[in-house]
Nucleic acid binder design. Structure first.
Length: 850
RNA sequence: GCGGGCGUGGUGGAACGGUAGACACAAGCGACUUAAAAUCGCUAGGGCAUGGCCCGUGCGGGUUCGACUCCCGCCGCCCGCACCA
């Protein structure tokens, strides 16, 4: 036989699985179900090595669960709407649809050789009318249930591309594509009422036991619950009071001014007959809203000229300003400034010469205030006096709560719980997205489309060569009949945020061709996703939106109540990284080189062509511009899918980044070749020859079954693989009989089969086993063989290992003590004296304290 | 600023509070070979007075018979959030 040849065996076994329909998800028998899902990819053009790692992890789980007697659902699809398709079409003159579907074809063709146990019959792309039509049906149900509404909202508007931009698409205040200065513009937009679920989404995080703590924390922070108080400030000119929200009413005595958001109704009203104010407000509209820019942005304000009364200091008046740093979206859009206890307020006060007054004083002496620096938020040793509750620890949560109670009791304000979470604006002025299924009728207003008219399909004859939304300027697409009055009407031309598409695809996979968004029976059977796997970058938005959608879909009857938390367990995997090779040009600018152009030696790295020395930046995120990318297709061509799968799971824990190295991939390939040769050697053994060490080999085998099973169950793939290496080494050195070695190699193949399924099948067949390895039940460790008859006990002297003794497992403690004290090292250390203490942990360790 | 995580050989990393460095990469030595590659075997945390002893998981303390692991305080790196009142 020739050596290990993945190019032959991999297609062979993939065909065998396909012919047998091995991975079709069925509801057969009374097997428990298991739904494993990896976050579906965006069809960018080619698969990435990160996809390989993500899907390999899911595949290990899926194959393992299948072997342990589960009906497994393991589907794949494409998150296929989005801007890149439009940009590619604009750049190349093609059509977004063509570009997207061509990419999907390419990526499917690249994924299939990896041998994932996917049920390809369930595949869909979110840009399929069959899918987005059902999404439109969902939208209409949400609308009817009051989960969607329309209102004016301020958005990032690119005046050149004539579209709304997401915050991430605004760079240094300019549109990422057009380079135009982004404006803040008010548009009528559709919103999901996710804020109705703020408390529920927050509270339910506690129940997500199999989610990473980090993700749960990020979600909790994103929802951002805070307890505070709304306090009305009375205007001295008799106008309506201005309500401010504060989480720190204990600092009220230090309040010296009010600041309104430029979008605050009072500010707007004033701007109508005050040109300076109007200019100021217009100016802030142009302001960049990205984090980085906000941080740098100067705090600016303008005095409105009117004042309010201080609620707790009789006779005191406070000027009212408009400040560019006050957000309309949070609280009431109005704050009181307390410069003595807030850095931002202090900056503002200093800039405009506003008063700085302390809120707290020392006990018994009202004239001595604390240091003029800010009162620290952490507990100071000084006991400040709280004017409202009279307690010492002003800055403690108890102090804040007490002050809220005090304000309420005095009738000066009302306690409020606020959330940072805002409603989810879903309108996008883009072509390549799911059309929002409503029409605008002159007589009836905004009218939902009839369900029987769904899907509202995107027109294909569009002009995408000029900026703006092609749906808006399409000659006929907008024209339609009002579903209510039958008169002429116009379609909504906004499409949905692509996050909507990915917020329910997991439910659709349970019945991808149902004529309603879900099939209740299928959804009830397959939901929830038992194991969800994806990148940490989706820790907040995608997962939060999906949690909201599952709740909304329950309200509208599309998911059972048991599925309102759609993902039972979540695993966030690390990236695949690669070293960057860089040299410098004459101007000291970096020049990047592809890994294949660099020769890496012990002493350093040099360019193969010129011998020029190359700097190595290790473990960097793969990026085309840095030329440190590895194309999985090349890897598979060179080494086969099993090697790629084995390598991405080896060495690094799955939640951590793994660095792709050519040497590592080569080593994985060699190892699989060794296993294959081992199988070949065992196949050629003399079946009648007596062996030695059968018992030892089988004990090691059962230990390995136990360890690998535990490793897979706990996402310890790297540790499981290490155990498989160790067992392979044991087996290759074993002199056991043919029968024992055959049993060992078959078990090894089974244990490797989730990671390297093709090689495993080949070994299975080579050893003449019945059927396919994918249909073989997972091996079970014989617990009686896990316990050794004799154990080697380390002997510590004062907690440091000094010696060891091998004793029968059940040797009485007293006997162990005797043997330990008789040990050379112990005797030498004791030098005739008696030990102070002797600790014997049976089967574990002996510690002699001197 | 707020919140969270991580620091172990040349490298990736392993280790229910119980033999620190499993497994692998890179390295060295040896076998095979005319030779090289491949393959196989062996060595390998550091130090020293080397059949033995000392030190060692970022630093300093603590709990414990025993600490990479638990607690407290530092230092460094990484991530998330943030004009959120």
């Amino acid at each position: 036989m020739a050596g290990y040849d993945p190019t032959t065996i991999e297609p062979k076994w993939q065909s065998a699985w396909e012919a047998a329909g091995s991975f079709r998800a069925t509801r057969e028998g009374d097997k428990p179900k298991y739904y494993v899902l990896e976050m579906f990819p965006y069809p960018s053009g080619r698969i990435h090595i990160g996809h390989v790692r993500n899907y390999t992890m899911g595949d290990v789980i899926a194959r393992y669960k299948r072997a342990t007697g589960h009906n497994v659902l393991h589907p794949m699809g494409f998150d296929a709407f989005g801007m890149p398709a439009e940009n590619a079409a604009m750049a190349s003159g093609g059509h977004p649809k063509t570009w997207t579907y061509d990419n999907i074809d390419t990526m499917v063709a690249q994924m299939k050789p990896l041998g994932f146990s996917l049920d390809w019959s369930r595949m869909f792309a979110t840009c399929d009318p069959e899918y987005y039509g059902q999404q439109q049906a969902l939208f209409l149900d949400f609308l009817e249930a009051g989960l969607v509404y329309r209102r004016n909202a301020v958005v990032n508007w690119d005046p050149v591309d004539m579209t709304v931009l997401a915050n991430e698409q605004v760079i240094d205040g300019k549109g990422w594509r057009s380079g135009a200065e982004v404006e803040r513009r008010e548009l009528t937009q559709w919103f999901f009422k996710i804020t109705d679920f703020s408390e529920e989404l927050l509270e339910a995080i506690d129940g997500l036991d199999d989610w990473p703590a980090k993700v749960k924390l990020m979600q909790a922070n994103w929802i951002g619950k805070s307890r505070g108080i709304e306090i009305p400030f009375e205007r001295t000119d008799g106008g309506d009071p201005i309500v401010c929200y504060s989480t720190r009413p204990d600092t009220m005595r230090g309040a010296t001014f009010l600041a309104l958001s430029p979008e605050h109704p009072v500010a707007r009203a004033l701007a109508e007959d005050n040109a300076d104010l109007a200019d100021f407000i217009a100016e802030t509209r142009k302001m960049d809203t990205t984090e980085a820019a906000m941080e740098k942005a100067e705090k600016k304000g303008i005095d409105t000229g009117f004042t309010v009364r201080h609620p707790v200091i009789p006779g005191a008046e406070m000027p009212v300003w408009i400040g560019n740093f006050v957000l309309m979206e949070y609280g009431t859009g109005a704050i009181y400034g307390c410069p003595a206890h807030d850095q931002r307020d202090l900056d503002f006060a200093r800039k405009y010469g506003l008063e700085v007054r302390h809120a707290f004083h020392m006990p018994g002496d009202e004239t001595v205030v604390t240091d003029t620096a800010l009162v620290p938020d952490k507990s100071e040793t000084v006991a400040y006096v709280d004017h409202f509750a009279g307690i010492g620890e002003v800055t403690s949560q108890a102090g804040i709560d007490a002050s809220i109670d005090w304000f309420e009791a005095e009738g000066l304000g009302e306690g409020q719980v606020k959330y940072r979470l805002r409603d989810w604006g879903l309108s996008r002025q883009r072509y390549w997205g799911c059309p929002i299924p409503v029409v605008h009728c002159e007589t009836c207003g905004v009218v939902p489309e009839k369900k029987e008219n769904l899907p509202i399909e995107l027109p294909e004859d569009i002009d995408i060569s000029i900026p703006g939304n092609p749906l808006d300027r399409h000659p006929t697409w907008r024209n339609c009949i009002c579903p209510k009055c039958g008169g002429p009407a116009l379609r909504e031309t906004d499409t949905m945020d692509t996050f909507v598409d990915s917020s329910w695809y997991f439910a659709r996979f349970t019945a991808p061709h149902a004529e309603t968004p879900t099939d209740p029976g299928e959804a009830a059977y397959w939901m929830n996703v038992d194991q969800y796997i994806g990148g940490i970058e989706h820790a907040i938005l995608h997962l939060l939106y999906s949690r909201f959608f599952a709740r909304a879909m329950h309200i509208t009857g599309h998911l059972p109540e048991t599925a309102i938390e759609p993902f039972d367990a979540l695993f966030t995997q690390g990236m695949v990284t690669h070293a960057i090779y860089v040299t410098r040009d004459e101007q000291d600018r970096p020049v990047y080189h592809f890994p294949e152009d660099v020769e890496v030696h012990e002493s350093g790295a040099r360019l193969g062509a010129t011998g020029e020395e190359v700097e190595i930046i290790p473990s960097a995120k793969m990026s085309k511009s840095k030329k440190n990318v590895v194309d999985p297709v090349n890897i598979i061509t060179r080494y086969g899918a099993d090697t790629a799968r084995w390598f991405v799971l080896s060495d690094s824990p799955p939640e951590r980044d793994v660095e792709w190295t050519a040497a590592g991939a080569e080593a994985a390939y060699k190892h699989l070749g060794r296993v294959w040769m081992l199988c070949d050697r065992i196949g050629g053994m003399d079946r009648a020859a007596p062996g030695e060490g059968d018992d030892e080999l089988l004990r090691a085998m059962h230990k390995t079954i136990f360890d690998v099973t535990g490793g897979i169950e706990s996402f310890g793939f790297n540790a499981a693989i290490a155990k498989l290496y160790a067992f392979t080494n044991t087996l290759s050195k074993s002199k056991a009989s043919y029968g024992a070695q055959r049993q060992a190699i078959l078990t090894l193949a089974q244990l490797m089969s989730p990671m390297t399924p093709h090689l495993a099948e080949d070994i299975w067949a080579h050893q003449g086993s019945e059927g396919l390895i994918v249909d073989a039940p997972w091996p079970v460790a014989d617990e009686s063989l896990l316990i050794e008859d004799s154990v080697t006990l380390p002997i510590q002297i004062n907690g440091k290992r000094r010696s060891e003794i091998t004793v029968a497992r059940d040797l009485p403690k007293e006997e162990v003590e005797k043997l330990a004290l008789a040990d050379d090292s112990v005797a030498r250390a004791l030098d005739g004296a008696a030990p102070k203490k002797l600790i014997v942990v049976p089967g574990r360790i002996v510690n002699v304290v001197i």
